[in-house]
Design a protein around this nucleic acid. Structure first.
Lengths: 212, 212
DNA sequence: GTAGTTAAGTGGTCAGACCACTGAGTTGTT
DNA sequence: AACAACTCAGTGGTCTGACCACTTAACTAC
């Protein structure tokens, strides 16, 4: 366990850092292969079990994917397992819930404004037909709606943050806006009135929380 | 490895489920103690290392807390450390650099607006004297300024996100605004004109990037 | 050439051994 | 009796070495 560590950090946490550094310095992208567990164990001078603890944790977070007999691969962030696990621990505190909802709304507002500059008629059609889809719940529609917006916003970082916050938010409850909200937003897009988006999002609370 | 499992589920995932079920059926609340690793290992007929992989993963998610020599305890779910880890991964990648400044500005804007509702005269004095500190670079002043604001904003999650974005941003170049910007913001606070903050941040580009 | 076999590499899992830390009981001193 | 020091069982932290299961590619036999 020679992974450098200042205080009483656990070995697996040190391994976590090292793996992160490795990914960074080698410019690995999703799909790329990581060294084998035995390799890592030797290079980092840590037991294989410690290396595995780090890898398993990262796997659960959706950061990487392991294929038996093949190896461990960096994966695009797919939070499925995380969501599923976290969702069963919902009972907790109000502060977090409040922060999540507020932060999510802020980010969605800004994504909406950013995207507004790039949306064309086709995009608006997609968004509208998405709202009319009867096979989705309101929560799913919301997600699809803003996913599309985030793709058009031209700010990858903000989009990723949205994914993250939205994901965590989902573990608490499905948050979406009242139906008229999306319509109004589309109207603003159509009339190219980007400046009014701020006001729309700041208008009185219109969130809906699934009872869950 | 007798934890019931349909397909080729890994043992640690089965353990995860069982622990979840245990918590549920025993009505454990944050602070309660879980069975020891050896107990779980025996009860679930799984190797201790597998049990540990599950526990470590849950720990990383912030679902539980382990105290050396004492045991493993259920903890209140705080997504913040997870956010931190995931963010560090999200922040890797090429095109993101150019989004950093924009995202940072957005978050700072919202923090400024949120904090505006809570700032008192003393806070304003602190902020002002901070600007007049001659021992700091413009980048340091900026950081201190918004750190204070983030503390007053009352949204821990958004603050955390700011920290991360700001940190990463620092590794690229020091980003701050022109001196008049902060003064104007303080004036808006003094006159309690929160609504104009949006406009201030959206006004023409006035960022300064250190060449670094 | 193609099908089947083999071997190396890799993740999956387990058992057992120590170490380090905590807390409660035990002992010893005053 | 009160308090300090010690002891020890319980628990997490870590490592090692051993197998098993799966994948891939090289090799062999036809």
């Amino acid at each position: 366990m020679a992974v450098s560590m200042s205080p009483k950090q656990k070995v697996y946490q040190g391994v976590l850092q090292e793996i992160r550094r490795y990914i960074d310095s080698n410019n690995l992208v999703p799909g790329d292969k990581l060294p084998s567990e035995r390799d890592l164990s030797e290079k980092l001078q840590a037991g294989r079990s410690s290396v595995r603890e780090a890898l398993r944790a990262m796997e659960l977070l959706g950061l990487l994917e392991t294929r038996h007999g093949e190896g461990t691969f960096l994966s695009a962030y797919t939070p499925y397992q995380t969501v599923e696990l976290l969702s069963s621990f919902i009972l907790q505190g109000g502060t977090i819930k409040k922060d999540l909802a507020a932060t999510k709304r802020i980010i969605e507002k800004e994504l909406a404004k950013l995207a507004g500059r790039f949306l064309d008629t086709k995009d608006l059609d997609v968004l509208r037909s998405n709202l009319e889809n009867t096979h989705q719940t309101a929560g799913e529609k919301h997600k699809a709606f803003f996913r599309h917006l985030s793709e058009q916003a031209g700010n990858v970082l903000l989009s990723k943050i949205w994914y993250l916050v939205d994901d965590f938010s989902s573990t608490v409850n499905a948050v979406y806006y009242e139906e008229g909200f999306y319509i109004k937003l589309l109207d603003l897009y159509k009339s190219n009135d980007i400046d009014s988006i701020e006001g729309l999002f700041n208008s009185k609370i219109m969130d809906r929380d699934d009872v869950n």
